[in-house]
Amino acid sequence: MENNQRIELPQHLLDEVQRVISLFPEGKQKSALLRVLHIAQAHFGWLSVDVMDYVARLLHIQPIEVYEVATFYSMYDTQQVGKVKLEVCRTGPCMIEGAENIVNYIEKKLGIKDGETTADGIFTLKTVECLGACGYAPMLQAGEKFHEHLTEEKVDALIEAYRSNPVANYMGENQNG
């Protein structure tokens, strides 16, 4: 993101932020922080210091209160990432069903290593810990979607689909609201 870009959520997301805050008692608006960070990351792509400072202002809390949360939880990106994050589960049950082969295959196919982003800025590959799909292993998460029972053919197809239509790499926008 360019530094000079104006940091502000559009009105419908500001409304969503207000709705989330209203779910907590008066004065407990800090409880909305995790969800508001998801919304902000969804919209801005990642959590730059400017974005975190903006979130602090929205919630009337100190910037440090946002930084310490953003750096604790693994889903928040405080560095720029690709439009689509491919997060491959590597924990036990997925490992015994071949998660390592899936990671190797994606690395070779996209020419990037774990944690890296493709030159065109579309894909970031990341290995993650158990995502709760152990019975449907191996699996990866892209945006909000779980892709399960992975095979090399399935990986080919989903990479092709995301390449032609890079869905935003995020979670948090309320699609129901």
Binding site: S31, L37, S74, M75, M171
Partner: peptide, 21 residues
């Protein structure tokens, strides 16, 4: 309310801390 990727938040007092933001 969502967490954001932390196994430890399944521990009840960590969950409470997380829900306090």
């Amino acid at each position: 309310m969502p967490g954001a990727g932390a196994y430890i938040c399944g521990e009840e007092t960590a969950l409470i801390e997380s829900l306090e933001g």
